[in-house]
Design a protein around this nucleic acid. Structure first.
Length: 412
RNA sequence: GGAGGGAUUCCCGAGCUGGCCAAAGGGGGCAGACUGUAAAUCUGCUGGCGUUGCCUUCGGAGGUUCGAAUCCUCCUCCCUCCA
């Protein structure tokens, strides 16, 4: 808890893990030394915009880094972008974000902080809402902010250039976003700002604004973007390749097991505390064939789930995985669906309707398709004809595809 | 403000000399085979409907026509160039 506990060099080494860029690194070392000498903790900022409800493991990474700083004795400063959320960060976007209502923002912020404080120590985290300063800013102040940026610099950015050339709209307010994020750094006198590498521009703007206000500029500590379960694109909700932060242990474990092999190593580096020597040793072992990649992946999955849900949940998730997927047995627990007696006289029911009622297909057409493709099983028996009724009994298991199970409840 | 270009099914993107268009191709997704629920690969499906047929889709509203994603009118939004 005391910044003087470990040396600045050791601290830097720990911080370096899983970063893509620290800019400038010398400045960070200087700040760490200064802090070590004076005992004054660094103010480490992480900004989150409560724009979406669904957080995933990609969002987790800078939070883990913030936790590390906290453990090193520094001051965590969490900015809740209630005001910026109504603007929307254009970074990497190909369209403007839809504006959110104040209620939505508050609700999202509640979700976010609940998850964040599963990692961070709430007692030692300073939480600031940026509406506090933006809400009362004068137009004159706004103009000052705008004067700190040039159009050319803004348009150099790849995301805007793409939209500009691709004949897609760019609203002026989107260009103000980086200035707002940078101004947050001014207001909380940040020494360090954390974020993904895609935040580099915004963090750099913070440095400029701090300098313009006569402060020592913050240092940016950026992590690489986490690739999603497809192994190609960065993890993002809209691409559907995420592992939800808030997911069940079983779901997270399963999703981690489905990542492409090359992702095992960056995931271990970014999401776990497994010592890097160990990670490298495993990687070498997999490459020379003495360790099965599946085994390495299981260790990864176990570590991540353990970190989010604890030891016991991780073990249970692993057992569940082996049972259902490795041995292809039925899971112990599955959702139950009640089949109304009137829909199934004597247990006889049209299989298409059954699949739809069980929530395993969104339309009759989709259900027909699944049946035609041999994806629907009733107590292990493949349903072959979409037009021929099947008989259901209480407790039967309806399965669609490899991984979706439902237990049928039927009172005839 | 003036001139021109554009809006297509989840996404990108053909079609736009009117019927053969539920709409090419790609991506994504789903399913099957193979597996380590990995990747890669191969195959099929991918608007709805108790489905050899019918219904609703091609920015919005009207119109022409036996028939319109395709032609006409108005509207909305976007982009480009000029100012």
């Amino acid at each position: 808890m005391d910044v003087r506990r470990i040396s600045p060099e050791e601290a830097l080494e720990a911080i370096r893990r899983g970063t893509e860029e620290i800019f400038p690194e010398e400045e960070l070392l200087e700040k760490l030394k200064e802090s070590h000498r004076t005992g004054r903790p660094l103010r480490v900022k992480l900004g989150i915009d409560p724009t979406a409800r669904d957080l995933h493991l990609g969002h987790l990474i800078p939070v883990l880094k913030l936790k590390l700083f906290q453990d090193l004795g520094h001051q965590a400063v969490l900015i809740i972008g209630d005001y910026t959320a109504t603007v929307g960060d254009p970074t990497g976007r190909n369209e403007a974000r839809p504006p959110l209502s104040h209620e939505e923002v508050l609700e999202n912020a509640r979700d976010y902080t609940r998850l964040l404080f599963q990692i961070l120590d709430p007692e030692r985290t300073e939480v600031r809402w940026n509406g506090q300063w933006f809400g009362s800013m004068s137009f004159r102040d706004v103009l000052w902010l705008l004067s700190q940026m040039t159009l050319a610099r803004m348009l150099e950015r790849e995301d805007f250039q793409k939209r500009y050339k691709g004949q897609l709209p760019i609203s002026l307010h989107e260009m103000v976003y980086p200035l707002m994020q940078g101004y947050d750094s001014v207001m909380v006198r940040a020494d360090v700002e954390l974020g993904g590498i895609d935040q580099k521009f915004n963090i750099a703007v913070g440095r400029d604004l701090q300098r313009a206000k006569g402060m020592a500029p913050q240092v940016g500590v950026c992590n690489p973007l986490l690739l999603g379960t497809d192994g190609r694109e960065k993890m993002s909700k809209s691409l559907g390749n995420t592992i939800p932060w808030d997911g069940t242990p079983e779901d997270q474990y399963g999703k981690l097991m489905s990542i492409p092999d090359p992702l095992i190593w960056p995931y271990l580096e970014l999401l776990t505390e497994v010592p890097m020597d160990q990670v490298r040793a495993w990687q070498a072992a997999v490459e020379e064939g003495s360790l099965h990649p599946k085994e390495a992946k299981m260790r990864l999955a176990r570590e991540v789930v353990k970190r989010l849900h604890g030891e016991e949940a991780a073990r249970a998730a692993e057992a569940h995985f082996e049972q259902v997927f490795s041995r292809r047995e039925l899971p112990d627990e599955m959702p139950e669906v009640h089949v109304a007696a009137q829909d199934a006289p004597g247990g006889e029911i049209w299989p298409v309707a059954l699949v739809v009622q069980a929530g395993l297909a969104s339309s009759n057409s989709e259900a027909r398709r699944l049946i035609r493709q041999g994806a629907v099983r009733l107590d292990g028996e493949t349903v072959t004809d979409a037009n021929e009724n099947v008989i259901v009994r209480d407790g039967m298991v309806l399965q669609v595809g490899r991984r979706r199970f439902v237990r049928l409840r039927y009172q005839g």
